[in-house]
Design a protein around this nucleic acid. Structure first.
Length: 263
DNA sequence: ATGTCACAAACTTTGTGA
């Protein structure tokens, strides 16, 4: 199976690129983040015409997650319905059964600045996520949690660790909260022995992509039965090089799992 | 040198979030 996660920064703006990528790579499942559209506005017909079922959880201008699958899409569930500091509940988590897998798309809050109310919200979200992962694992299926975590797990996951001191995405608090999620029983697939952890995000500004100044903040986490099935985890930079790109590139994992199993 | 992008208000420009 080929599993992918991609923060597209608006599915409306990125639809041509997403359709081209689906046709070229034919992932079994693609997890999306920052769809930035209301449920009724998701370009469902175009994606279905490409051969994918769609589950989306959108809220409009910001956030929004989706699961695209060509191996079945059942038991769809949203979650992590905690309120942001402004009192609104944001669309940041969507899980489904796809073939043999339980799989979830997550968009972790950015956090804005250390000590900001939205930073506290980010940490609270990750604590809720830990509990949610524990419950998904209790379902007994091979489980994958993929998405934009807005955390670089290690200093080697950012282009200049010194430049990030005092910033979000690298703080000990965020890394501890991510470690807590992993402690529920999932593993960072791109960081497995034999794989090469690569940047997944490059700021639009200042030519960061051209200059190779990126961060590894998009992750695929897997349960032990997924880990034992991992063949290759890689970042496909080609859509980041295209015209009108997202600031993130898709992260893919090829697994020795039978997509027909477990239905 | 925060040098880009996307969205939506009620605008051909600005505020917001990333």
């Amino acid at each position: 199976m080929l599993i992918a996660t991609w923060n597209v920064n608006s599915i409306q703006a990125r639809l041509p690129l997403v359709l081209e990528w689906l046709d070229r790579r034919r992932p079994d499942v693609l997890l999306l983040q920052e769809t930035k559209c209301l449920p009724g506005a998701f370009p469902r017909a175009e994606v279905e015409a490409a051969g994918y079922q769609v589950a989306d959880h959108g809220e409009g201008r910001w956030n929004g997650v989706a699961v695209l699958s060509q191996v079945g899409l059942d038991e769809v569930a949203t979650g992590l319905d905690l309120a942001a500091p402004d009192g609104r509940v944001e669309a940041r988590y969507l899980a489904a059964d796809c073939g043999p897998l339980r799989i979830a798309s997550v968009y972790v809050p950015n956090g804005r600045e250390l000590g900001h109310p939205y930073f506290t919200y980010k940490l609270a979200f990750l604590e809720e996520l830990r509990g949610r992962v524990a419950r998904e694992l209790a379902g007994g299926r091979p489980f994958i949690l993929g998405g934009d975590f807005n955390i670089a797990p290690k200093d080697s996951d950012v282009f200049d660790p010194a430049a990030f001191v005092g910033q979000t995405h690298v703080s000990p608090e965020e890394r501890a909260a991510l470690a807590s999620v992993l402690g529920a029983g999932v593993v960072d697939l791109a960081a497995l022995p034999g794989q090469t952890p690569s940047y997944t995000y490059w700021d639009y500004r200042q030519g960061f992509f051209r200059r190779g100044l990126g961060m590894r903040i998009d992750l695929l986490l897997g349960s032990p039965d997924v880990v034992s099935a991992v063949e290759l985890v890689e970042v496909d930079r080609s859509p980041r090089q295209a015209a009108r790109p997202s600031d993130h590139a898709p992260l893919t994992a090829r697994l020795t799992l039978d997509s027909r199993a477990g239905a």
